[in-house]
Design a protein around this nucleic acid. Structure first.
Lengths: 220, 220
DNA sequence: ATGTGGTGTCTGGTATACCAGTTGAATACC
DNA sequence: GGTATTCAACTGGTATACCAGACACCACAT
């Protein structure tokens, strides 16, 4: 978020507002967003709204259909597949990289995540999902590669949009915890290969579960 | 590029113009870009210039320094390292994916690239670099994963900016051709593992050469 | 000579007016 | 009633005016 001192521009406020609404599905895929009506509703001019929409378009959340308006992109099966495929390639790589530079403190931090998530699994599903994202992004941060981090962050954002269904059944949450533990264990052995495999396995499983759920829904 | 029929917006024209200038180093890192003077020079208003600069900022080409102006980002050693690291992870993965779905026709196409590049190596370095980029992007396209393609495309853009030096010595061009051949050979065997390794090897070599050149320059 | 305050002029951020292409519904015509 | 046509009301794209923060510089007071 761009800030100038303590000042947060309208553009960024509008951007966050719309993006959150899109991720949380308050704005459904297929809904159209009009610069003028959003501007009116939020009490700002078209300019910041326009810039916020442009940014969302760059990021692939919405698309501009000429003379129609800005439309929230549908979630296709293909989208989910692509996001997981990208995560598979890059998080596996993250595992390999991180395995060679991780320290005791980092592992302690990971165990903290694990502890919190174990508690949250029975209390707050939304928060569980957020924590899951943070777990993965924590690993990404350790690589120190800003481009890699940004890409994975972007993918995580997209996960949130369809991820809610993915983890929200109890058995999958338990599996998630097990797989995270396996990842931590792999780091403790220090093996690059094991760390990669553990992350790949975890991502692959998430993908399989989510796609299976989608296919089931579509069948109805 | 967003088009409405045959109409290309000023925003996109300005975007392309500035981006090309940045990539080709006509605009040097550290140079500052002023909305007003660019608008005047190109004969358009601030609005499209502003939007073009926003897009460039989002893509990481420039950064906005409050009350100072929009400044073209410097190329640090770290940037080169990051780009290659991302390419290593993702192009290796591309190799693995593509190996299982590549056809005879595709391999023929790759050999065409190889033929053209062999000729260009002795004639036109700039064109050699463009063709090299196309070779890699052709492989990326075969995955059909638009997010992966977009990411690699973005990385390739950044390569152009510092890549000119990377391939522009004769011995490296010859090596590049050999390594591309090895990639094609790997695809012909159909082995996922070999294809991945061949691409990883190629990227790793490019990185080593380029970073060595940078370090040498910096030493002077 | 030095410190201080005013001021002109940079910057990006925002509001607003206007334009042109598109669409679709009301209307005119058969 | 059915079909062609017109036109008003959308849309995003662009130009322009104005604002406030930041900063460099110079005059002036000490």
């Amino acid at each position: 978020m761009k800030k100038i001192g303590k000042f947060v521009s309208y553009t960024d406020q509008v951007y966050r507002e719309i993006k959150d609404a899109v991720i949380s599905l308050d704005i459904r895929p297929g809904d159209s967003l009009q610069e003028r009506s959003i501007a009116e509703k939020l009490g700002v001019s078209r300019t910041p709204v326009r810039e916020a929409l442009k940014k969302l378009e760059f990021e692939g959340w919405v698309e501009t259909i000429p003379w129609k308006g800005v439309v929230v992109k549908e979630i296709e099966r293909q989208d989910i597949f692509e996001v997981f495929q990208c995560r598979y390639a890059n998080e596996g790589f993250v595992g390999e990289l991180v395995a060679s530079l991780i320290t005791e403190e980092h592992i302690t931090d990971l165990k903290e995540y694990q502890k919190r998530m174990t508690t949250l699994a029975e209390q707050d599903r939304q928060q569980f999902i957020n924590e899951d994202r943070d777990f993965h992004m924590y690993l990404a941060q350790l690589t120190g590669n800003s481009r890699l981090i940004q890409f994975l962050d972007h993918l995580s954002d997209q996960m949130l949009r369809f991820g809610i269904r993915a983890v929200s059944n109890d058995s999958r949450m338990k599996e998630t915890l097990k797989e995270h533990q396996a990842i931590i264990d792999a780091f403790e052995t220090g093996s690059k290969e094991k760390a990669r495999k553990a992350l790949e396995f975890h991502i692959q499983n998430s993908q399989d579960i989510l796609l299976a759920m989608i296919d089931e829904e579509d069948a109805n």
